[in-house]
Design a protein around this nucleic acid. Structure first.
Lengths: 345, 345
DNA sequence: TTGTTTTATTTAAACGATTAAGCTTACATT
DNA sequence: AATGTAAGCTTAATCGTTTAAATAAAACAA
């Protein structure tokens, strides 16, 4: 960078005053600090002429605030989170915050690393999409008295601010939708996870069956590990189909599971929805492109992102206010993959 | 944040020395600055005990370096760029840099905004995926003597460092692949763009036709505007099919165009590849999921991202070294959507 | 005139680090 | 004894801001 930055000092020199005056004027404190009218005007003028840009570094060092938010998401290669990231970024910029993003890749270790790096960078607060087994980190942050908001996933046993989805209700809706359309043997493929949002999805699914007096079969529920999706999804679908009560409908608890599952369903030559109805969480271009458009639970990404920023911003301004816990509703977008069941001839 | 940060001063106090010594020791300059053995040990010990974390802000203010890279990408909601972002972030972290990401959403205005915000944040350098008509910004940066590397897109008339794809070669390969598999009437859907990478793709496509002595038809080449993809793609495909020489194969110049085009091809009830063979740039889960897996040009995202970071890092260390201009090759992944043409019976 | 306010401005410390330069000792050399 | 020099520290300036406190000058009151 060639042109050495112009500082408050340069302006002061030009105007023939002290740096203090310049600071007062440029921060709009001329009234409180009783700065003269014409000198204020002159300072503003010179600042404009020199194209003065205040140093965030110096400001931050002094104030202890960096106007920076650390966003830790579980997986940036997942379009859902990528979009959330973009929304958070836009929203934060509107209120004068810069966002630094990190992807934990669903591991607690990386997540902890990121938290440390970001704390070192003196972020003012965090928005976090928690990874598996990262609850200890939440305690850590609470302990340090750092402001944060959990997004999309939260820990019911830890009192925190959060913005998340009513996953129970969403899964319940998905199940009821299928049942009402005539499907009785409904499977669910979920992640093997201790995270609450996943458990809630399972709970909702089971509640739907219960409400329609369908007896749950253990082989209908498959929980797969993060790093063995491919194999376990295949094995799971096989088991569901080989059951005494083979499934006629399948719910995927996440977008990624759906992609994996649909690939395999294609391989098997099964026709959606005649052989197997489908509903999935999340949304993806892939769902539109599929020969039979996939019914999905639309998560209000925009609202989730915006709300998270707003809750955090508020928390930063008023640290003592009570915690905000927001649950949003997903919307079921019904399409061909779950259309009313036609009895096989 | 409750526990007030521990500073170099606290350590100095505990050790009963001046802050200078602490700084020397903690920066490994004990030799040059002739610090006593045991006092050095003691300082290190105390630093560890107090869990000292240096303040980036103070360091940066002093040094003028923030160890931060600004990454400006054209569109974070595009999985290709989202992945690039992730790779850049990981790679940068390895060498001690933090990345702040901004999405220009393919507009020069937002891109300029981001550059200003990031400059204000004193990023050490930029990695930029340029938006349309943003060449003036590149001059601006050059003028300011800011270090940057262009990624994926560059301006041939402006001498800069860049890491990009051999788009000409990639498109040529795509065309030749189709021609060699028996397709003669090949269309291309591209963006209406002044950007070089897009022009190169078109040039490569036309070169392929030329090499096989296929006379190019104007209606085979459709260039659509960013914000009218849907309609123009439809109209374009219609025109290509209604031609005197209707197309039997279609190349999409980007992933997003492919998604849009394939949806419409589905609507039309055309069968891939029997009615229409397909090759697309970019890669997407959607391509795998399609009933007929789509042939695509695999961009070496990993290498692109890593190389960009490495070129920038080098530039930051040795600003005077000659510019690095890297062109990488895409790999054609042949799948069913472009399999050898079977003459219609 | 003297004292009290009010107004306008400057001084200087602080944020947390880095680093050139200066200051003591101790010891070796002449 | 005088001088040189190396070792081991400390001092203080600096990066660019903010802001409490001090100061100076002007305005007003008694």
């Amino acid at each position: 960078m060639s042109q050495k930055k112009v500082s408050i000092k340069d302006i002061a020199q030009q105007a023939g005053v002290s740096t203090a005056l310049v600071s007062y004027v440029l921060n709009g404190k001329e009234k409180e600090s009783r700065v003269g009218q014409e000198i204020a005007l002159k300072i503003r003028q010179i600042a404009r002429e020199l194209n003065y840009q205040p140093s965030y570094l110096a400001k931050s060092l002094r104030s202890g605030k960096t106007q920076t938010i650390g966003l830790i998401i579980a997986d940036i290669s997942n379009p859902f989170f990528a979009n959330i990231a973009r929304i958070v970024e836009d929203e934060a910029k509107k209120i004068g915050y810069t966002v630094i993003i990190g992807s934990s890749d669903e591991t607690a270790d990386k997540s902890r690393d990121l938290i440390d790096v970001f704390l070192n960078r003196q972020v003012d607060g965090f928005i976090i999409v928690s990874a598996e087994a990262s609850d200890e980190q939440i305690y850590y942050l609470k302990d340090k008295n750092v402001s944060f908001v959990l997004l999309d996933r939260h820990f019911p046993e830890i009192p925190t601010d959060f913005v998340s989805l009513n996953n129970y209700k969403a899964a319940l809706d998905a199940g009821l939708h299928l049942l009402e359309n005539g499907y009785k043997h409904i499977g669910l493929i979920a992640y093997k996870s201790g995270l609450f949002h996943m458990k809630e999805r399972i709970r909702g699914y089971r509640k739907a069956l219960e409400q329609h007096n369908v007896t749950f079969r253990p082989e209908w529920l498959i929980e797969v590990g993060f790093d063995t999706i491919e194999q376990e999804v295949k094995a799971g679908i096989n088991a569901m189909l080989a059951s005494d009560a083979p499934i006629d409908a399948l719910i995927f608890a996440t977008y990624r599971l759906a992609i994996s599952g649909l690939k395999y369903i294609n391989e098997l030559g099964l026709k959606v929805p005649d052989d197997l109805a489908i509903v999935s969480f999340g949304q993806a271009e892939a769902f539109d492109l599929y020969y039979c458009p996939i019914t999905y639970l639309q998560q209000p990404m925009d609202d989730l992102g915006k709300m998270a920023v707003s809750v955090l911003a508020n928390k930063l301004k008023h640290p003592q206010e009570p915690q905000k816990q927001v649950l949003m509703e997903a919307q079921l977008i019904a399409r061909d993959s779950s259309r009313r069941k036609v009895p096989k001839s």
